[in-house]
Design a protein around this nucleic acid. Sequence first.
DNA 1: TTACAATGTGGTACCGGTTACACATGAAAT
DNA 2: ATTTCATGTGTAACCGGTACCACATTGTAA
Lengths: 332, 332
Amino acid sequence: MATIRDVAKLAGVSVATISRYLNKSGYVNADTELNIKHAIEKLNYLPSVVARGLAGKSTKTFALILPDISNPFFPELARAVEDVASTYGFTVILCNSDGQIGKEKNYIDILKSKNIDGIIFASNTLGQEDVDKLASFNIPFVCLDRAPTDKSCSVVRSNNREGGRLAVKHLLESGSKKIGHIYGPQDLIPAKERLIGYEESVRGFDWFSPSLMVQGDFGISGGIKATEELIRRHPDIDAIFAGNDLMAVGALKALHRMGIQVPGQVVVCGFDGINMTEITEPELTTIAQPIYDMGALVSRILIKKIEGTIEADQIYELDVTLIPRESTKRSG
Amino acid sequence: MATIRDVAKLAGVSVATISRYLNKSGYVNADTELNIKHAIEKLNYLPSVVARGLAGKSTKTFALILPDISNPFFPELARAVEDVASTYGFTVILCNSDGQIGKEKNYIDILKSKNIDGIIFASNTLGQEDVDKLASFNIPFVCLDRAPTDKSCSVVRSNNREGGRLAVKHLLESGSKKIGHIYGPQDLIPAKERLIGYEESVRGFDWFSPSLMVQGDFGISGGIKATEELIRRHPDIDAIFAGNDLMAVGALKALHRMGIQVPGQVVVCGFDGINMTEITEPELTTIAQPIYDMGALVSRILIKKIEGTIEADQIYELDVTLIPRESTKRSG
DNA sequence: TTACAATGTGGTACCGGTTACACATGAAAT
DNA sequence: ATTTCATGTGTAACCGGTACCACATTGTAA
């Protein structure tokens, strides 16, 4: 591998000039520039990002910390993050935290020792300690969904509460008379917000009762269990709003097992807009978050932070959209 | 951030001793060792991987190049790769190539400039040029599914041909009388092998005709189109073996739209064993590859190559397993 | 007693860039 | 004629580690 000194020698100038040429910092004569260009080509020279990083500059790398890339919500997000990263010349390190603070802390240390430029947290467990650590390390970071407790930081999220309202509205319009809700873990802000959106919208109806709200774990099996419980409590229910798509899939499975027709007897609406919703039978109505856009945005924000072209921390709230499909289409 | 020199000063020894302590290379006195340990703790010292990398050592980083993390096959693989990477202290860079050679080449350059230790190719488009480049850069790499044309390299794959046979066997045993096959792009070795497995198994039957084989694109929509074509050609078909799960999902969709009962009239079997097969209605029978194991293995192999504890290049072929589900369960 | 190995430690060049600083040149301004 | 400034380039210290080599000291075999 050729080094900057090889190039300097071949081009007949000093390394400083090469460096200036490479970084477009300082003056370089037009002729010299040409010489350098040729030398670089001839030697097939590629500057070492590692050396650059050691010299105190950017390593052109950031990390994406998420609970689990196997969770269908994250691949699309990761794809978006990586897409914009790569157009800006950045490279993305993938970290699965499983939502464990320990793993996260561990990653932060490793990442720091690798001099990465920043971190995107799509994880739900960003604790105060983590944030302090990041701050002390002076690593830029951006969060998805959840703002750290007290520290200011940019956050990208979607309008979950409005999504909850949207779901209820749609279910009502499609003729539902009694709507249950399967909510996700309440330590997750989005789950909480969706629940609030639901509650706000149904509170006024006389059919409403708190027992229409059942907790799930944001997974398929949790959706199944919660649905069973919900039907047990309220056999006369005719609509289920699940706090996320995986639980909605679970609801579909549970209802199918119980011989309850969807959308004939009960209609189901999910939340997130993951691809999986298109392959269920019936296809799943969902409140879609703009997952790709969120990933792209969060990535762009981080890069701007890294490059110092961004001012204040800010909360970016994106709109959700109703995607009506078979699972809420009542024939009547 | 404390440096090795800070630690040296505090511990009252030279940097060389600290380095020896850190790398467990050479002699360090027990007392000195204790001093160093304390100094490190006190200063909260973390060795810089970047500096280490520049000094010619490992950057403890490798890349996973795959077509698209959004493709449901890859998240699980990526997860496995990252899991074993992280237990060995490695960090994984995620690269989406979209199967484009240009992007791949680009990544290789960038990765080289970052001094990464190795690459896992889960991409199908590893060209000769890429391989040459890797060889000239002296970057260890391991491939998934596909061996590069002439260069020797370790490959992890599963027994696709046997999987094809297994599928046909299962479909026959479940009472199928005429089995069609939707095969994937023939430039992908696994698709080809599965087709061969199918062909070998059905060639002998009098119902077999080459028109029972239709090409798909390994995607859902391709599966839909191919299924429509297949049914048009052979309305009397009673079983479909799709070359991968996504196309099998497409087949399910297409058949449902055409009002054809699964498994009542036509049974369907997929290939891969992605999670999605559990959420279709009916649940999809599939020939499962040990995706997680493959990822874990390929990751382990690469790390061994990097650490130099592996000898020759080798092909690792893993077994596939039939997972019988609703979609091939004939009531009769 | 001498020779030699094992143990323990320090000095420092080097990895491949960046950048502060010094220094030159020529043109324009005073 | 002198100052000033824009342009252009080189020298060398530095980033934070690694590792080669030199140099002690001590124990032990010849």
